Structures are given as C-alpha cells and as structure tokens.
Computed example of a mutant assay.
Amino acid sequence: MKRISFVVLALFIMLGSAHAAETVKIGLMAPMTGSWASEGAEMKQVCDLLAEQVNAKGGVAGKKIEVITEDDGGVPQTAALAAQRLAALKVTVVIGTYGSAVTEASQNIFDEQKIIQIANGSTAIRLTEKGLKYFLRTCPRDDEQAKVAAQTIRKLGVKKLAILHDNSTYAKGLADETKGLLAADKGVEIVFFDALTPKEQDYTTVLTKMKSFQPEMVFFTGYYGEAGLLLKQAKQMNWKVTFMGGDATNNPDLVKSAGKDASAGFYFLSAPLPKDLPSEDAKAFLATFTKKYGNPPNSIYAVLAGDGLRVALEAIAKTNSTDTEKVADYLHKNLKDFPGLTGKISFNDKGDRVGEVYRVYKVNEEGLFILQP
C-alpha cells in the first residue's frame, strides 16, 4: 500500500513538473487589498485578459502563459514577502507594482534571483539609479513629471505656491524635484513646503497653516486618498484655492471621497487615461475589456501593467527563450518603439521608458477627468 502511494505521489510530482515546463510563468505583484485595492483589481483584470488573448493564439514561444498573482497590500513589508513567494515559484517576469516604496522593497529580491521586474506605477527616480539589470518600468520618472508640473504652474500664472507631500519615496521625490526646478524662477515663490501624515482623517491643521501663507495653488504630490480629503476639508473651510496633484491622485475614488463640488477644478498630471488612448489597438482592447468586465478600466496604471506584460511577452517571443539574461538584454537593447497600449515603448540602459508621457488633466463639474490642451 505504501509503495502504491509512493508511486502515485511520484506521478503527481512528474505531472506537476511537466505542467510547469509547459507554461511561461508570469508573476503579478499588485495591491489586491489595502488602500489601493482598486488599482490592484484592475491590474489583475488587464493582465488576465491579455494572457487569455495570447493563449487563445497559442501562447508564446510554444507555451501557454500562466499569470500568478501575489498581493502586496500596498505595504513594503508585505511586498517583500510577496516577492519571495513569486521568486520561489520560479517566475520569469514579474509585473508590478503600484507605489515606489512598495516596489523598492521587492527590487533586490528579484534582481538577486535574476527575475525581470517591470513596474507600472512606481515613478521614484532612484529606482532606476541602482544599476539593476532586471528592473524596468512602463511608467515615466518623477523628474519627467516634475518638468510638466513646473511648466503647468508657470502656464497657469501661479506666483505663490504651496507644495505638500507625504514623506513617501514617490511624493517627497516629486516635491523635491519640482521645488528644484522652480527655485531659479523668480516669478514663482514657494511660500510653503511641508509634509502631512498619510491615512489620517483630519487635515484641517495643515490646511489652516497653508492658508495663512496665502498661496494661489497647492501642489500635493501624495496619493488620491489624502488628496480627496484635502479637497473636501478645504471646501468645508471655504478656502478657495487651486489644487494640483501628481499622477498618484489619478483615480476616480478621489471624486468619490471629495465630492464633485470639492473636486471640480482640481488639476493632476498623468499618463493619458484609458479613454484618451489614441491607437486602434488600445481602443480594441478597451472594448474587449468592457465587454468582459462590464466597464472600461478606470486607471491608467492597470493599462501600464498590461504594457509591461506585452513587452515581456514580445521579448520572450523574439528570443524564443525564458532565459532572463536574454530577455532582459532584448528589452534594453532591441525593443524599439514597441506599439504599446499607452504609446510607443522603448527602454534605456537604466530600464526607464524613453519619451514624453505625462499630460495635464482637470476635473470638471460632473467629476469627469478632462485632458487639457
């Protein structure tokens, strides 16, 4: 009886190994729980749909794709554990994640295991200044975003500016970069530069402090949860000041938390929203997504995750290999102007996406995000 059980067990192991050999394992690290769960849910939907489409056409390099999702909770410590689990599963590529500090907690784990990581919503400059061969990102960097922020502030004629961040890797980096670009501009005075504590429920103290400096605009470089609350409480204080946010404020939940009245007139920077993607390929994918899930994706970061998967599969197909050394070399050196859903994609030696991506949006009276000319 024991011998039969051993033979059966051995057979299951062999079948499991055969299954593993027949698939290309792609990891998805995303915030499936926590404050950014809406981002994670759409990242998974986009990647699952793309994998389904590719598998229907026979897969890649003669194998079907298997997407394995791990929840990082939007927390660095949880991300490190999620990265270790994906590394143990011997994935070839990991897509994700959202949040620079969260991504940073996983970078060295993947690099040491020679696993390619393609981040989709992690814009902090230092992520690609470490010389990590296996790290790339489909989103642009904060220094590019800061340039657009400074240009927009000047274009809107702002003379007195307040900059507020949350001390996170992303938000502090964007705030510092923007401050640096405006430092030599005698036409713009930065009258306030400070941080709030994220995930609090009352920001009236910091709002009152900023108001005392009489800025014409507040540039908040943190995330949409806090941005919504700032807008709501500023309106309750009857403080009529223009707010602008970085790309982490780009989420419909901002309007839900602030209310349409409070969020009207809010500016933010972002890669083009899904509804504004111009290519026919993007429009076709969004139509298929809508048919499958009942609505189009709200977040561009989900689509940027999809582009990460698409370029990874392109590299695997062109090298006809899951050898991460070959795949990484192809992505850095040979992938040129790949027709991504979010536009043409190429990477430089550091793994950064090449080209201008950021746009300016404004929230209208109906709470809709309108691309600005």
Rank of each mutant, 00 (worst) to 15 (best):
V255E: 08
S257I: 14
Q45W: 02
L368G: 09
K275F: 00
E226V: 01
V241H: 01
Y223S: 12
N320F: 02
F213Y: 09
Y301D: 05
A105Y: 01
C139M: 09
A82W: 13
G173C: 09
T342W: 06
T128W: 07
Y358W: 08
I300V: 13
V8L: 14
N295V: 13
K232Q: 09
A282Q: 10
L127R: 02
S35V: 10
A183T: 13
K90M: 00
P278M: 13
K344V: 02
T242Y: 01
L286P: 14
C47W: 06
A20T: 01
D307I: 06
V148F: 09
G294Q: 07
T208Q: 15
R154W: 03
A41P: 00
N251C: 04
T33I: 05
Q145E: 15
A315R: 06
R141P: 10
K362I: 11
K147A: 11
N120Y: 09
E42H: 05
M29P: 10
D253I: 03
D111V: 02
E144S: 11
N238V: 00
P278I: 14
T78L: 13
V54Y: 00
K275V: 04
T208F: 11
V363Q: 12
S346A: 11
K44T: 04
Q372F: 03
V158K: 12
K256V: 05
L132I: 07
P274S: 05
F110D: 02
A124D: 12
L49Q: 08
E366S: 15
N251E: 08
N250I: 03
K2T: 07
N295K: 15
E365H: 03
G16Q: 11
A248Q: 01
L335H: 06
E104M: 14
P252C: 11
D71Q: 08
A195N: 08
V67I: 15
I118S: 10
A150V: 09
G294T: 11
T152H: 02
T290R: 14
E104H: 12
E129K: 12
K318V: 02
A21M: 09
V46S: 04
A61G: 05
P215Y: 05
A227K: 01
I115F: 07
I125G: 00
A284R: 13
K133G: 09
L196V: 02
G180Q: 08
N364A: 10
N251Q: 04
K130Q: 15
K90Q: 10
L11A: 15
Q113I: 05
V7W: 07
N238Q: 15
R126T: 11
A83C: 03
A101Q: 14
A124E: 12
R359A: 09
S106E: 12
A282W: 10
F289Q: 08
T123S: 14
F369E: 03
Y293M: 05
K209V: 06
K64Q: 13
P274D: 10
V218Y: 04
T69D: 04
K179D: 12
K64W: 02
T97R: 08
N364I: 06
L136V: 07
S270E: 11
V46P: 05
I109W: 00
K199T: 04
V148M: 14
I163V: 12
K291V: 00
D349Q: 14
E226M: 00
Q214L: 03
T178R: 01
R3V: 15
A87E: 14
G131T: 07
K2D: 13
K235F: 01
I300N: 07
I65Y: 05
K186D: 15
L273I: 03
